[in-house]
Design a protein around this nucleic acid. Structure first.
Lengths: 275, 275
DNA sequence: TCAAATATAGAAAATTCATTCCAAATAATG
DNA sequence: CATTATTTGGAATGAATTTTCTATATTTGA
């Protein structure tokens, strides 16, 4: 396994500490500065660092060489990697996962990888959804006299689940599924007091966009479950909930989406009960 | 109070999202890159970013100006401030989550509970499904000349997903959904060389049992996804896969089921590819 | 105290960088 | 189809950055 950013950083700190007592005064001064200001070391230019540490830029270069690097630039990479490492992006984690799943192709290995990916997706969901967003979405759903649920193609299973579950709450719910080619007819039922709950993932189906636009023009409330902020639906929506299910070979597991859907439904049920 | 690095960053993200739809193609491309790679945006030089995003450096400068900055450098400060500000350890992240859970509204607490429950469901799935069961299920699916997918009521979303995904593999697939009251007619198409993939959770719908029985009598292969061994379908099935999604107030999240479904589909795709 | 060695400061040089500008390409308009 | 407006690619520019170099200062050891 390749060395992580944090490890390299800690190793460098150790090295600096070890050498500190045998450094010349100026180098020692820089060593202390470096250990005390790792953020600055990561971001500032040598000139700025020199200014902050009250030394000459050339001293910084000598320092970098003294601890074993070719120059300041390569030393700086270590301080940067540390910050990167602290926050591995969701994409990076999933990419790492995908790397592994290429090795074992057996179905069981797949199940393992996908379930780990789904777990990551759920964790991501917890971390990124903001309480007030959820709150708002539930309010909009509770406020609509009829809830319309939209989801086509890959989003359809989520929409179907939402419609089923909301229906069990004894609320008026309508699944816009485009059955019999009647998408527009279904959409045209949406009125101003209603709420449209739209589920849409990339690539965003044109028909779905059309339905949302129509609902928007009719002044219906719109709650949108989607996979990213760069989404043609987002700007028409009154509430946007972001989910990022791991995608493998073009398929999304929808595990996190389903979890969010369940949350919305149960929260809606409680809200309605309380009234 | 002075604006934190994180706030500024989130504000910038919002702005990018808001403007995305009116950007030119190249600017849109950069917008997506920026949101997907905030780390790179913080550290890399414009030339490197341009290379990564596959655009010209000048386009990056145009982008920075389009979102309201004087140039790339000032925009980059925002991405850097985010990392400066925000270097939580794992423990801190957990604590922050608890904090939000406590002070946050009820729906968010629900989301937390459900996502934890779903995570446990996934772990359970990993632990209980045996490799040879999966192998067998995939073989049966690969062997059938037509795959029929059955799932009614709460199981319907899983079935819909399976049908959609198997269809994308260019295989003949047929979703038995009982549309137009034609459940029996749909079921009567199943022949001996076909495979029925039945999804059924408690309380097992009578109609579903009927369809499986009919398929069984016609000597079709039967793969069953269900929630326990005490299931009327199990004894007719050639392969049984057991999933236990967490249940809350009578609702199942289906997260684990979706994960298993994805696994079956991708494994099937690979199996067919290899032939 | 004096020479030798080492460390430092600061200027200079060589890169690299962000930005600008203009021409080519593309899309919109009449 | 011709014209106009946008958008895009890529070279040019000038500022900034890292690094090297050298004269000066400081320390070391006799």
């Amino acid at each position: 396994m390749t060395k992580s950013g944090l490890e390299a950083y800690e190793q460098l700190c150790d090295e600096i500490s070890r050498l500190h007592h045998e450094f010349s005064p100026r180098l020692g001064q820089i060593a202390e500065f470096a250990l005390a200001n790792p953020n600055a070391m990561a971001f500032e230019t040598v000139a700025q660092l020199a200014d902050l540490a009250d030394v000459q830029p050339s001293s910084f270069v000598r320092f970098a060489k003294a601890v074993g690097y070719e120059g300041c630039s390569s030393m700086q990479q270590v301080f940067r990697a540390r910050l990167m490492d602290h926050q591995p992006s969701y994409d990076e984690r999933i990419r790492a996962l995908r790397q592994r799943d290429l090795e074992g192709a057996a179905p069981f290995a797949l199940l393992n990888d996908f379930s780990v990916a789904a777990t990551e997706g759920l964790a991501h969901l917890r971390e990124t959804v903001r309480p007030e967003q959820l709150e708002r979405a539930v309010s909009l759903l509770a406020g609509g006299s009829i809830v319309y649920v939209l989801g086509l193609r890959r989003s359809f299973p989520v929409a179907a689940y939402l419609a089923y579950a909301i229906g069990k709450l004894q609320r008026s719910v309508n699944l816009i599924d485009g059955i019999g080619g009647m998408l527009e007819e279904q959409a045209s039922c949406i009125k101003a007091r209603d709420t449209l709950l739209a589920v849409s993932f990339r690539p965003y189906a044109d028909e779905a966009i059309g339905v949302v636009r129509e609902a928007h023009e009719r002044n219906a409330s719109i709650v949108c479950i989607t996979d990213g902020p760069l989404n043609p639906l987002a700007r028409m929506a009154d509430s946007v909930l972001e989910v990022r299910d791991a995608e493998v070979e073009g398929f999304r597991a929808l595990s996190a989406s389903m979890c969010l859907a369940l949350t919305l439904v149960v929260a809606l049920g409680r809200r309605v009960e309380d009234l």
